[in-house]
Design a protein around this nucleic acid. Structure first.
Lengths: 235, 235
DNA sequence: ATAACTGTGTGAAAGGTTGCACAATCTAGT
DNA sequence: ACTAGATTGTGCAACCTTTCACACAGTTAT
């Protein structure tokens, strides 16, 4: 007997749902019918109880003593994440990274329909990348009136990010995947996720040098490690 | 009088250090000499106390009543993150994403020296990307004996990731930035950071549709939002 | 000197997330 | 039917992270 109502869903849970979905797709391709939370732990490194709790935010999907129907769970999670229908997405910034993202298979796999690419560089405007022509960012408001994209991928230089983001939001974009290393100041209703290679590299760099003396052979499985010994101490 | 010794540093702290460093570089270019934790909050959206606590893991860097010397703090953080010297980094996977990363300016800015690119696709081996020639991954062990890279960027398809990661680790790589959507099972001593656009997009997608009815104009500043109302409830 | 500010470093509180442990529930075999 | 075995959904405790709040330390002005 479920009772979820207006409880709030942790953001990490949403991220993990995407991981579950990936595993379910693999299982489906292997013609597996049923899966248990323990199986999922085995595949993802995410604790079985965590998996069950993540799902419990949205209802009850499993049968005690049996597990979860792969096909059913897949549909349910897709519905939760709203990727059961194709979603229009726009890309702004057709530089290195932007162009690479156009071909990224993960987008279509997750029903993200890249419908337009924008840039402000006259050298790039009009160019064809994959199956899309790069358009002038100045035309964004007009074009998006037709496209109605609510999700945008922002792959412009840091200096331009805030300005461009405001243009997007003015044209009804509600969610931004931001690759620029800057803080975007936007209305609270707009959701921003920052992808920062910098930060990840910092973590790696720190660890590499601090692990200098350790030596053991355990397996690691979790998606994120938690903390490490500091090494430097300066004043 | 500091007393940090073998306390453990939270991973989020390391990520934020990279952000502070970015802001400090901007401040230096604007010829600002001194900065307070409140200034940093203004620039980054990260709570001032958080900033001070993050630094406190490594020592004392500020003067009460004055703030922090921009130049000094910059050096200190760079030293903590071990990016005060150039670090050799290798890239595996010269596909779309991999190629884009070769040109990514953030790498050099953070003293990451991309010294070699590998792939297993014969069509790509030998090709020049920017200033590097793509080498056969089979030669990795040999080549890295000379290069001595400890950090690797893994931008190969999911199916190849585990296999390649093991090759890297066998050749003394200790930290991997993994762009493949798979769980890497590696010795615990190896640090893995996963970058998953999928997960970020899932969060965006979920939010876009759930925000359907809201309407308010507050500013958002933090780097991460925390939770949201669920909308779906299925069985 | 002293008073009035400003801003650091940190102990303690608040808040959020993860993992354990177990009752409840379903299946299958006898 | 009944028992044994499997596996879910969840209250609770442990853990981790963030934020508050304040003592203490420099700085400036009088």
């Amino acid at each position: 007997m479920p009772m979820s109502s207006s409880n709030r869903v942790p953001v990490p849970t949403l991220g993990r749902l995407a991981t579950y979905l990936r595993v379910l797709t693999e299982l489906e391709q292997a013609h597996t019918e049923t899966v248990s939370s323990a199986d999922v732990e085995q595949q993802t490194g995410i604790n079985a109880a965590q998996f069950r709790k993540d799902l419990s935010y949205f209802g009850e999907f499993g049968k005690p003593g049996v597990g979860y129907s792969v096909a059913r769970l897949q549909e349910s999670i897709a519905a939760i994440l709203k990727i059961d229908r194709r979603q229009p997405v726009v890309l702004v910034g057709a530089g290195n990274l932007g162009s690479a993202l156009i071909g990224y298979p993960g987008l279509t796999e997750h029903q993200m329909d890249l419908v337009a690419v924008f840039d402000n560089n006259p050298q790039r405007i009009g160019c064809q990348v994959r199956n899309l022509y790069v358009q002038d960012i100045q035309r964004f408001a007009t074009v998006n009136e037709t496209l109605q994209a609510r999700i945008a991928i922002l792959a412009v230089p840091a200096g331009a990010a805030q300005r461009v983001a405001e243009v997007l939001v003015a044209a009804d974009v509600r969610a931004i995947l931001n690759f620029a290393p800057t803080l975007l100041r936007l209305p609270a209703a707009v959701v921003v996720r920052n992808v920062s290679f910098m930060q990840e590299l910092a973590v790696l760099s720190y660890h590499v040098s601090s692990n200098e003396q350790e030596e053991n052979g355990e397996e690691q499985a979790g998606e994120q490690n938690n903390s490490v010994r500091p090494i430097l101490h300066s004043t």
